[in-house]
């Protein structure tokens, strides 16, 4: 029996490893990062809130680049107001839809609500206008099911106009040379002339 013990133990180990290898579910990946992720209350709010008070129609609003912020800004608008949103110069330069196709504008999430917080939708006449003077070969993309898809846009001078526009997340993409990311000048020029987004013809739901 003693002579057979190693073989029995090895067989048991083999079965154990096989069963473990077939274990149905992996543990959820931990989110802990290298820098200790302890949020400090004092520094938690790194985005200063916008000035208080309702904005009149046609106000130029500095867009903060998150859907939550835009949503919050839209709540303060009177129903049916025209809204011009100016994107601050920003940087987003990551492959999104092809080897040399880079996002050069922030992702604008267009969510529209009236002053009372009700959903409103863009009328068929609504349009999104991207001003992109230096983004050669630029085109507008919309986020659909986690994939960026090009949407038809009319080129008017330095502007790209999408009409009709739907609510959703949009961004400007441009083709950059194959030697990206080493082509710093173009990347900088594109990024510093980021998109200008115009949302108008907001109409309330019936």
């Amino acid at each position: 029996m003693t002579r057979r013990l190693p073989a029995v133990a090895s067989a048991a180990l083999m079965v154990l490893l096989a069963v473990a290898a077939l274990w149905p579910s992996a543990p959820p990946p931990a989110r802990a990062q290298t820098a200790p992720d302890v949020r400090i209350r004092e520094t938690a709010a790194t985005s200063p809130e916008p000035p208080a008070g309702a904005r009149p129609a046609q106000t130029l609003v500095t867009l903060r680049l998150s859907s939550a912020a835009l949503d919050e800004d839209s709540r303060a608008l009177p129903a049916g107001a025209d809204l011009t949103l100016l994107a601050q110069p920003t940087y987003v330069a990551l492959p999104g839809a092809g080897p040399n196709l880079l996002r050069v504008s922030p992702a604008f999430t267009v969510t529209a609500r009236d002053a009372s917080g009700r959903d409103i939708e863009l009328s068929p006449a609504a349009r999104l206008t991207f001003i992109q003077p230096d983004a050669a070969g630029a085109s507008v993309f919309r986020l659909e099911r986690n994939a960026w898809r090009a949407v038809p846009a009319v080129k008017l001078g330095h502007a790209l106009v999408v009409q009709p526009a739907r609510t959703g997340t949009y961004a400007l993409f441009a083709e950059l040379p194959p030697d990206w990311p080493l082509h710093d000048d173009l990347l900088t020029a594109v990024a510093m002339n980021a998109a200008r987004l115009v949302v108008d013809d907001l109409v309330p739901n019936p």
């Binding site: 190693p6 073989a7 133990a9 090895s10 067989a11 180990l13 083999m14 154990l16 490893l17 096989a18 069963v19 473990a20 290898a21 077939l22 274990w23 579910s25 992996a26 543990p27």
Partner: peptide
Amino acid sequence: AAWLLGEPVRQLTWVLLPLLAVGGV
């Protein structure tokens, strides 16, 4: 622990499992 115990087989393939047992003996 059960999941991690299966790592040798998942990482090194099933082919090695019997060899591992023989090596243990």
